[in-house]
């Protein structure tokens, strides 16, 4: 049986179909999970996609954490299930307390929409298990609030616990320590600003996102058989 990936849909999400397409392109099944439903329907992995959940009212991600589905996602994550938040999904995961820190406005004061070169920092996360440390990947970014920040203690523990997953080679947004993506201590919850689902075929300009989403599918498959 192929791996089933649940993709959350909030009012204002706008990258969910890209994630569905990318997941299916890589040979897995994808299904949309409405934010108002209090279940993740027994999927093997959850992706929180990009967009503007609840219109980014108050702050990006601030309202999304009250959606019923987030309780199910939190429980799924606590049980070791793979959860990846992309862009606005990363903001949702920090606001929901599943990942530390916050995303502030880009240091360059501009909305950014461009390819970014990332370096894989660790392979112990569900998003990088099939990659190699030091591997460089070209994956697009598309955000205004992607400047990762946290206090010094949190940054030190991210480093000590090997929770920095991806770094920008040429930091586009001012993120502390060039952070493009982080994971929780267990490595099963990952948040990143770049969009791997937009880089899964050479036709899109890069297929470097395949190793990331492929890693997620591998991790989801492992948790299925485990």
């Amino acid at each position: 049986m192929s791996v089933r990936v649940g993709v959350l849909v909030f009012p204002g999400s706008n990258c969910e179909q890209d994630v569905v397409w990318a997941v299916e392109h890589l040979g897995a099944q994808a299904e949309l999970l409405w934010h108002g439903d209090g279940s993740v329907s027994g999927v093997d992995a959850v992706v929180v996609p990009g967009g503007f959940a609840h219109g980014d009212y108050l702050r990006p991600g601030a309202i999304a954490r009250f959606s019923p589905v987030m309780e199910a996602v939190t429980e799924f994550a606590r049980g070791g299930g793979p959860v990846v938040g992309i862009c606005n999904g990363f903001q949702v995961l920090t606001e929901a307390g599943l990942l530390p820190g916050a995303l502030q406005k880009n240091a360059g004061l501009k909305f950014l929409c461009a390819p970014a070169v990332l370096e894989v920092v660790t392979t112990r996360s569900v998003l990088t298990g099939d990659a190699t440390v030091g591997q460089r990947l070209s994956v697009p970014v598309n955000h205004f609030e992607g400047n990762y920040t946290c206090d010094d203690r949190t940054l030190a523990s991210l480093r000590d616990d090997d929770c920095i997953v991806l770094r920008y080679v040429d930091n586009p947004n001012g993120s502390v320590d060039d952070i493009a993506g982080i994971c929780n201590r267990e490595g099963n919850v990952v948040g990143l600003m770049p969009h791997p689902e937009r880089a899964v075929d050479e036709l899109l300009g890069s297929a470097d996102g395949r190793v990331l989403l492929g890693s997620l599918l591998s991790a989801a498959g492992t948790s299925v058989t485990a």
């Binding site: 108050l58 702050r59 601030a62 920090t94 606001e95 820190g101 916050a102 502030q104 920040t149 206090d151």
Partner: peptide, 9 residues
Amino acid sequence: RFLTNPVIE
């Protein structure tokens, strides 16, 4: 808990 994100606000 809600109106601000204490990390940045």
